[in-house]
């Protein structure tokens, strides 16, 4: 029984690290720019396709994942420049635009790539034993990569110049501008970094699950639950919430019912909103 609990917990942590990566991008953009970017899930989907096509063309998964991350970073920067910059200060306009983008990107992808699900060859397959535990090789790899990316992102925020500028902007956009932070550049960087993380998450999703034009919906929904659960704008909150959701889904599916899998996240969210309305760490306002 204990072994089973540990195994289930590891499953939850592995998939939770992916959820955390998606939630990071959402919470970052909202916390700093005030826009709920619903099109974030589309960056996950497009990143997954970029990786899938590169791997299918004979490139390694690593090339696919890196190109997907960079391509989505550029995509995010372009979106900020062409669309979201014009909606700054008007969250509802930003929301409406991002909803429109979902429809456009999703349907263009379905028309161009067909809605058929595609499965990519993972760089590693099968499983390996750690004592009595049997671990999936690819899931373990995904966990290591996503944890490294999350850690790297946190270090970037704490110690890099741009990271410090982002943190300054999160406290006060006007104050940051007054002390010389180029808020336009930082805003674009936030979109680029958030979208790049989504692209990386997409590549990792593609190594585990089916790639379809409609795959962005699930990570997006979960990402928003997590962003709200962690406290909108809170990076540590989003990370913790990602792992919490992964664990809740894993234990819920294993010991309760797999037919209610997505419900567990919402139950946690409802309890969090009732008892921790400012997020897991009491963020209250943007905190990176």
């Amino acid at each position: 029984m204990l072994l089973d609990i540990i195994q289930t917990g590891l499953d939850g942590v592995m998939v939770g690290s992916l959820y955390a990566m998606v939630a990071l991008g959402i919470t970052l953009v909202f916390g700093l720019v005030g826009i709920l970017n619903f099109a974030h899930g589309q960056s996950v989907m497009l990143g997954a396709y970029v990786c899938f096509f590169l791997v299918s063309a004979g490139h390694s998964f690593w090339v696919g994942a890196i190109v997907a991350t960079l391509a989505m970073g550029v995509f995010g920067a372009l979106l900020e420049r062409a669309v979201f910059r014009r909606t700054l200060g008007d969250p509802f306009a930003g929301l409406a635009v991002s909803l429109g983008l979902i429809m456009i990107i999703e349907n263009v992808a379905a028309a161009a790539l067909t809605p058929d699900p595609r499965f990519m060859d993972a760089p590693v397959s099968g499983n390996f034993a750690v004592g009595p535990l049997l671990l999936s090789s690819q899931r373990s790899l995904v966990f290591v990569i996503s944890s490294a990316l999350i850690l790297g992102f946190w270090l970037f925020l704490q110690y890099s110049t741009l990271g410090k500028a982002i943190r300054a902007m999160s406290q006060s956009r006007q104050g940051a501008a007054l002390v010389g932070v180029r808020v336009d550049t930082v805003s674009r960087s936030i979109f680029a970094v958030g979208s790049a993380l989504a692209g990386a998450a997409g590549a990792l999703y593609a190594s585990l699950f089916a790639v379809t034009p409609f795959m962005g919906a699930a990570p997006l929904t979960k990402g928003f639950i997590l962003a709200a659960l962690g406290g909108l704008g809170s990076v540590p909150g989003a990370i913790a919430a990602g792992f919490l959701l992964g664990l809740a889904e894993s234990f819920g599916s294993r010991y309760l019912s797999a037919s209610f899998r997505d419900g567990y996240g919402f139950i946690i969210l409802i309890f969090a909103l009732l008892f921790l309305p400012t997020g897991l760490f009491g963020a209250g306002k943007a905190r990176v």
Partner: peptide, 17 residues
């Protein structure tokens, strides 16, 4: 007999059953 939520992508937890 196990029923999973339609749209499920991650089957690992239910497969453990």
């Amino acid at each position: 007999v196990e029923f999973f939520q339609p749209g499920t992508t991650d089957f690992a937890p239910v497969l453990r059953k």
